Computed example of a mutant assay.
Amino acid sequence: MLSTTVMYFVARLPNEDLMSWGWRIPFLTGFVLVVVGMMIRLGVEETTDFSEVKKAGAVQRNPIGNVLRTMPGRVLAGIGLQAAVIVLFYLITTYMLTLATNVHGFTRGDTLIILLIAGTIDLFAMLAFAVLSDRFPARRMFLIGSVFTAVFAFPMFLLFDSGNMLLMTIAFTVALVVGHAPTYAVVSSLTSDLFPASIRYSGVALCSAFAGVAWAGPTPIVATALVPPDGSAHWWPLPVLLIATVVISITSALVVRPKAPAEEEQGVEVAVS
């Protein structure tokens, strides 16, 4: 929301000013968020599970090495869990906004308004689903959101292809609120459940980093290769791409169950620091 708001006002600058100095504004304001993020992180206490690991003197000397050596399958599962979550989000927030500008003639400001509306509602939806995940199984919520993403893939692009700003806003909002929000709200919880407490942080960090490389970066590149953003090709490969990532996410959620407490430290090399 903050980045989109900043970009909306920056995009209203004359093109010459935008290209010469305006583009620096979002990067400079980003440093403020880094400081805020550091303050929040430093104020967060360790989890009870990890505090018990530290008390027992079972902190890992090489947690990343242990994760990759003993649980590569769980790392792959954690990466797979995020496939549809990330691809849906980056299709909407990068590629489809460019398509709206190039094909449907929207201004940069128009596309950012659409994104701001959909993203704001998505933010509050994620908070609501996070609260609901304390009452309902996180995996069930993840599967429901993933299935909806697949079901709504073609309708979303049909609404987008209308070239109508209201219909585009509805398409993005519904996709983010019902597809992205319930999955994103719980995917970190599902990922953390894959690893025992002594290596959990490293396991989750590896999954998140590799998922970004595997899904976030390539999404606009692959989408552009499949459907050039100049309107020269039909959009049907894009919902097919999205559905394929949903299959990956659902498979990852189903084939790997969380480790039971009795299994947590089995097979994990524990080294006293």
Rank of each mutant, 00 (worst) to 15 (best):
L2W: 04
L2M: 14
S3C: 12
V10Q: 12
V10P: 10
V10M: 01
A11W: 04
R12S: 07
R12D: 03
E16F: 07
M19L: 10
G22R: 06
F27V: 08
L28I: 15
G30I: 03
F31T: 13
V32E: 15
V34G: 03
V36M: 05
M39A: 12
I40Y: 09
E45W: 07
T47V: 04
D49T: 08
D49K: 00
K54Q: 04
A56N: 08
A58E: 12
R61L: 07
I64T: 05
L68V: 06
L68Q: 07
R69I: 00
T70G: 06
L76Y: 15
G78S: 12
I79T: 14
L81T: 11
Q82Y: 15
A83L: 08
A84T: 10
A84S: 14
V85G: 01
I86T: 08
L88W: 09
Y90W: 13
Y90D: 13
I92T: 13
T93L: 05
M96T: 05
G105S: 10
F106Q: 00
F106I: 01
F106A: 00
R108M: 08
R108C: 12
G109Q: 06
D110N: 09
D110P: 08
L112I: 10
I114K: 00
A118I: 10
G119F: 04
L123P: 12
A130E: 02
G145D: 05
S146G: 14
V147K: 09
T149K: 00
A150H: 13
A150I: 01
A150Y: 00
V151P: 09
P155T: 02
M156W: 00
F157L: 13
S162F: 09
M165Y: 12
L167P: 13
M168R: 02
I170C: 05
A171L: 15
A175T: 15
V178P: 03
H180M: 03
T183L: 14
T183F: 11
Y184A: 03
V186W: 10
V186P: 08
T191D: 04
S192N: 14
D193I: 00
L194A: 07
I199S: 09
S202P: 15
G203M: 06
V204A: 09
W215H: 09
G217Q: 00
V222R: 02
L226F: 08
L226V: 03
P229M: 01
D230L: 08
A233E: 00
H234E: 10
W236H: 12
P237D: 02
V240E: 01
L242G: 01
I243F: 01
I243Q: 02
V246S: 02
V247F: 02
V247L: 07
S249H: 02
T251Y: 14
A253L: 13
A253H: 10
A253I: 14
L254S: 13
V255D: 05
V256M: 12
V256C: 09
R257D: 09
K259R: 11
K259Q: 13
A260Q: 11
A262L: 13
V268I: 11
E269V: 05
